[in-house]
Design a protein around this nucleic acid. Sequence first.
DNA 1: CTTTTAAGTGTAGTAAACTTACGTAAATTA
DNA 2: TAATTTACGTAAGTTTACTACACTTAAAAG
Lengths: 285, 285
Amino acid sequence: MHSQNLINIITDALPNLNKSETKVANIILSDPDAATQSSIATLAKKASVSEPSVNRFCKRFDAAGFPDFKLKLAKSLVSGIRFVNRNVDPNDDVASYTPKIIDSTINTLASVRDKISYTRVNQVVDKLIQAKRIYFFGLGASGSVARDAEHKFFRFNLPVSSHDDVLMQRMLASTGGAGDLFFIVSHTGRTKEIVEVAEIARDNGSTVIGLTAPDSPLAAMCTLAMDVDVPENTDEYMPMASRIVHLVVLDVLATGMTLRRGPEFLPHLEKIKSSLKPTRYKSDS
Amino acid sequence: MHSQNLINIITDALPNLNKSETKVANIILSDPDAATQSSIATLAKKASVSEPSVNRFCKRFDAAGFPDFKLKLAKSLVSGIRFVNRNVDPNDDVASYTPKIIDSTINTLASVRDKISYTRVNQVVDKLIQAKRIYFFGLGASGSVARDAEHKFFRFNLPVSSHDDVLMQRMLASTGGAGDLFFIVSHTGRTKEIVEVAEIARDNGSTVIGLTAPDSPLAAMCTLAMDVDVPENTDEYMPMASRIVHLVVLDVLATGMTLRRGPEFLPHLEKIKSSLKPTRYKSDS
DNA sequence: CTTTTAAGTGTAGTAAACTTACGTAAATTA
DNA sequence: TAATTTACGTAAGTTTACTACACTTAAAAG
């Protein structure tokens, strides 16, 4: 459970407070920011109560003492601002929409971090480790996610490919079988073509993993659904947060694979890394 | 200007600190949350320095004193941003590496949010608006970023394409001219091929924008460099944070363009959106 | 290489801030 | 109205943070 905003807690408790506590509460609520910066003496004076009254007030609201209370108050002031009004407004200028976009991406990632199922991640890593061959499928914006995944997973010394062409996807899905893993990326999980491809692959005995929305037709069709819940409203007209989330989940899966492979795998990564050196200008640092 | 996250400020300042300040910084960074709850004495003891050293440390970071510093630190800890000091460890299990990866991405985004130049964003949006044609170029992992950008920017009713083939890139760069915009994505900005392509394009009178590292050869070659500073260590063996940052910056630029186009542009976006409807299974909600 | 200057760091003392213990006043209940 | 609880403040005690100064180390100048 998320701890509620301290200011709301105080406001709610207002009717149940006694005289001096009410005075303290009013002063704090009238200017919470000032409260975080004043000493217990100044605050007591402003509220026309004694210092211990302020102290008792703090303890009543589950703080160790006055300094601790100020800390908690300061924290609740920040979180309030951040989450207010994070949608882009037609009148926004650069200085407004830039942080808004980034903040909304950050918030989405934070929510995924708190909701993602570790056991599911583990199960998917298991399947990836067992696979003899991996196909990454996606359409539209998910096509480039699939392509990125190919770039990431080819490093594991496995036959890997990515495809964003429906016909190609159907053909590959129908020729696959045990040992083949079809990793299908789709934000909505409701694109007919891609659900059909998943069905074909599954019917032919391949492993099908879907990086998609929970409870979607695609998720239902998969051997294992790596489902992530991404709030909708951000992607009103263009896919934004969903791609990012998918990419980060793929980072997590790739990391899981790397760790499962163990240290004897690092030289291989080093080899790939150094193979790129001759293509680069030397760094001046 | 967005007020910067205190933890990032400290991390950035780390190399410029003197001995005892470094000690204090390390203790704070190793467990910022604990720091907000300890007294100046406990912190000084933990860092093996004197109390005044801690105090001086606080003042160096624009705090009135230790309590004020703690307040600011506490504020930086909220808003979903968790600080990760450690990289993924070979012994980590799912429950450890999953949040680590996501948190490190979040932190990178937060630092970009605080450092990105709004004027630069505006300038790049200007160029994008003026362009008659846009080419997105990238190699390797940046190839899929370029591809994603194509998907995003085609919505502006502009001739847009993405290319990850060096020869194709060279040819297009040499045939381009005024009105053409080459948008080149490269994390390092030191890949020889891509710098050469930028040079060719510029010499032919095209506009060249680089989404790349500041002070890199590519940035130097551009008409305008949309430079973003992404900490290196995260991308030791695989590109992780950099791609994400590039995608989000492209989101910002696309948003900038959308807003600049004004409300008469929304029907066009709506048209694209509804064109996808017949390809989807109906949502049961 | 020495001298001078500056920067860095710690000690000790002081002031402020916070907490506790206790006593009195107000309010509630019998 | 007396008894009892709750509310509140005073004053003392304790912790915490800051300042002034001294020493130590490093850098710059001679």
